[in-house]
């Protein structure tokens, strides 16, 4: 942890920079109508916010955000775009105002709730006074992993994490059983039907995709 104390100004500057980048991206996502551009920008948003989580020392959250937000959900959004149009309709009238009001109200509530929170890194906060101190003191001699969160998740609560992995595996397996893979998948069946309709409407014509 040496050198950490002298770099507070740098951390503050970095947080402000990353948050302003996130702000610009969020405004752009709300204003754009091209769905593909929105998918690309949401990937950037996830990547930048993952970097911000690293700057805030939440490395495990950053891992999840980078792999789920920037990786998997970009691919899922692109797959969903196959089934719909490429541009969004412009909202008019009340549908343009109500989401803004909801967002402002939620933001105001979150800011109001954050007033009561203890300061960042406060040694007297509830998280740092009960069992957290025990973990911080024991992790280094017992497990010798530099990241305490990793030590808690993978070692102290190893059985809990194993159970979670089992649950996620069962959920993924159920999705695969429902949707299928390869030639038997739902998408392949739909495309096969499309091709039959095409050849019936245009007999002899080579379908060019």
């Amino acid at each position: 942890m040496s050198g950490y104390e002298g770099s507070d100004l740098f951390i503050a500057l970095l947080n402000i920079t990353l948050l302003s980048i996130l702000f610009v991206i969020a405004i752009a996502i709300a204003r754009l109508r091209s769905l593909f551009a929105i998918v690309m920008l949401s990937g950037i948003y996830s990547l930048v916010s993952a970097t911000w989580f690293v700057a805030l020392d939440a490395v495990d959250v950053a891992f999840t955000e980078a792999s789920v937000g920037a990786g998997i959900s970009t691919a899922l959004f692109l797959g969903a775009m196959l089934l719909t149009s490429r541009t969004a309709k412009a909202e008019e009238g009340i549908t343009k105002i109500v989401p803004l009001l909801v967002v402002i109200a939620t933001g105001a509530m979150l800011v109001y709730a954050s007033i009561d929170l203890p300061a960042f890194g406060d040694p007297n906060s509830p998280a740092n006074t009960h069992v957290g101190v025990e973990y911080l003191e024991r992790t280094k001699p017992e497990i010798a992993i530099p990241n305490v969160v990793t030590a808690v998740l993978a070692s102290y609560r190893g059985f809990d994490t194993l159970g979670e992995v089992g649950v996620v595996f069962a959920a993924g397996l159920a999705v695969v059983l429902l949707l299928g893979f390869g030639e038997r998948s739902l998408g392949a069946t739909v495309r096969q039907k499309d091709r039959e309709i095409d050849t019936n409407a245009n007999p002899g014509g080579e379908d060019e995709r």
Partner: peptide
């Protein structure tokens, strides 16, 4: 390196793979 913890390099390697 600026924060004095070069452990971040591991994370950036993972980001490179995802990217």
């Amino acid at each position: 390196f600026l924060l004095g913890r070069p452990d971040f390099l591991d994370i950036s390697v993972l980001y490179a793979l995802i990217n």
